[in-house]
Measured scan of single mutants.
Amino acid sequence: EPREEEAEKYIKRANGDYDKAQELAKKDGNEEIAEAIKEYKKR
């Protein structure tokens, strides 16, 4: 799923820090991806 791939990219950029990844996504205006990262975190 493209959303998950995007989320993974942010998580990698944030060195595995989900909260930081979420912030990066929000900064880029990717609210949807920020949500996907939140879902990811719950797994």
Rank of each mutant, 00 (worst) to 15 (best):
N30L: 13
G16V: 00
R43T: 10
I33D: 01
E1F: 14
E4M: 15
E6D: 10
E1D: 15
E5L: 14
E39F: 04
E1P: 12
E6S: 10
G29F: 04
E35F: 06
A25R: 00
A14V: 04
E6V: 08
L24Y: 07
D28P: 00
E4F: 15
G16E: 03
E32D: 13
A34T: 04
K42E: 13
E32C: 12
I37Y: 00
D28I: 02
G29N: 06
E39C: 08
K27R: 11
E6P: 05
R3Y: 14
N30M: 11
K42P: 04
A7H: 05
E5M: 13
E35K: 11
Y10S: 02
E8V: 11
K41Y: 07
Q22D: 03
D19A: 09
D28L: 02
Y40D: 05
K9E: 14
K20H: 08
A7P: 03
E31G: 08
E8A: 08
E31L: 14
D17T: 01
E32N: 09
L24K: 03
K26L: 15
D17P: 00
D19V: 08
I11Q: 02
E6Y: 06
E4R: 13
Y40Q: 10
A14Q: 01
I37W: 00
K26Q: 10
E5W: 13
A36H: 08
K38Q: 09
K42A: 10
E35N: 11
A14Y: 02
R43F: 08
P2Q: 13
K27G: 08
K12P: 03
D19F: 06
P2V: 13
A7Q: 04
A7W: 12
R43I: 11
L24S: 05
E6K: 06
K38H: 07
K42T: 07
I11N: 02
D28T: 02
E31V: 11
E32M: 10
L24P: 00
D19G: 06
K27T: 08
P2E: 13
K20N: 04
A21H: 01
N15D: 08
E6N: 07
D17I: 02
K38W: 06
A34F: 05
K12Y: 06
E23F: 06
E35S: 07
A25V: 02
I11H: 01
D19I: 08
A36E: 06
A21F: 01
K12H: 09
A34H: 04
G16N: 05
A14C: 13
R43N: 11
G16T: 01
Y40H: 12
A34K: 02
I33P: 01
A21Y: 00
E8W: 14
A36I: 15
N15K: 10
E6T: 12
P2W: 15
R3H: 12
R13L: 15
E23N: 05
Y10N: 02
I37H: 00
D17R: 02
E8C: 15
N30W: 07
A34G: 05
Y10Q: 03
N30S: 05
K42D: 10
E39A: 08
P2D: 14
E35W: 06
L24Q: 08
Y18D: 01
R3L: 15
K26T: 09
E4L: 14
Y18A: 04
K27N: 11
R13H: 07
K26W: 10
Y10T: 03
L24V: 02
E6H: 06
Y18I: 06
G29M: 04
Y10K: 03
E23R: 07
N15A: 07
R3M: 15
A14P: 00
D28F: 03
I11F: 02
K12C: 10
D19E: 13
A36D: 05
A21R: 01
R43K: 13
Q22I: 15
Q22T: 09
P2I: 13
K41T: 05
K41L: 08
K42H: 06
A34D: 02
A21T: 00
E23A: 10
A14W: 00
A7C: 14
D19M: 06
K20L: 15
K20Y: 12
Y18V: 05
P2L: 14
Y18N: 01
A7T: 07
R13M: 15
R43C: 09
K42I: 07
E32V: 08
E5A: 14
D17A: 02
A14F: 03
E35G: 05
E4K: 11
E1L: 13
K20I: 12
E5P: 09
E32K: 11
A7I: 15
D17Y: 01
E31Y: 15
Y40K: 12
G16D: 03
Y40M: 15
K26V: 10
A36W: 15
E31R: 07
A36C: 09
Y18W: 06
E5R: 13
R3N: 12
Y40A: 13
N15E: 07
A21E: 00
Y40N: 05
D28S: 04
K12T: 09
E35H: 09
E4Y: 14
G16S: 02
D28R: 01
I33L: 10
K41H: 06
A7E: 05
E32Y: 10
E35D: 10
E23I: 08
Q22F: 15
R43S: 10
E31F: 15
L24A: 06
I11L: 11
K41D: 04
I33R: 01
A34C: 04
R3E: 11
A21N: 00
E35P: 01
K38S: 08
K9N: 11
K27C: 10
N30K: 15
E35V: 07
Y10I: 04
K41M: 10
K27I: 12
G29E: 03
N30V: 05
E31I: 13
K20F: 12
L24D: 05
E8L: 15
I11A: 00
I33Y: 04
R3I: 15
E39Y: 05
A14N: 01
K9R: 11
I33S: 03
K20G: 04
K41I: 08
K27L: 15
A25M: 00
G29Q: 05
E23S: 08
A25Q: 00
Y10W: 03
Q22H: 10
A21C: 00
K20Q: 08
A36F: 15
A34W: 06
N30R: 15
R3W: 15
Y10H: 03
R3S: 13
A36Q: 11
